[in-house]
């Protein structure tokens, strides 16, 4: 199982703080595609994906137990 954390407007749109995805091993791109198809989350065009607190690219692998997070454009400071 892979846990995907949601923040900001994505959290409000989906109505939960995280999503669980049943996968042993997959890619960042697959997670992105799965969420787009399974949830009414709008577009994820400007949304980055972090794996275990580091920004990841579409081809990067994700394994069960990893913590994934959707990172919309940040606005801190």
């Amino acid at each position: 199982m892979i846990k995907v954390l949601l923040f900001a407007h994505l959290q409000e749109k989906v109505g939960q703080e995280s999503i669980s995805i049943e996968r042993i091993e997959t890619t960042v791109k697959d997670i992105r595609d799965y969420i787009l198809s399974a949830y009414d989350i709008g577009n994820l065009e400007n949304v980055m994906i972090a794996v275990n607190e580091e920004y990841a690219l579409d081809d990067d692998m994700v394994k069960a137990g990893d913590v994934v997070a959707l990172i919309p454009p940040v606005s801190g400071g």
């Binding site: 923040f7 454009p73 940040v74 606005s75 801190g76």
Partner: peptide, 29 residues
């Protein structure tokens, strides 16, 4: 900080509220 730190700001106005960075005109990456 404004480029890479995962912190988000929601502005609350008299007329509503919105998460900033959510707007189409902002393409920080």
């Amino acid at each position: 900080i404004k480029q890479v730190v995962p912190i988000w700001k929601k502005e609350i106005w008299e007329s509503g509220e919105a998460w900033i960075g959510d707007q189409l005109e902002k393409t920080p990456y």
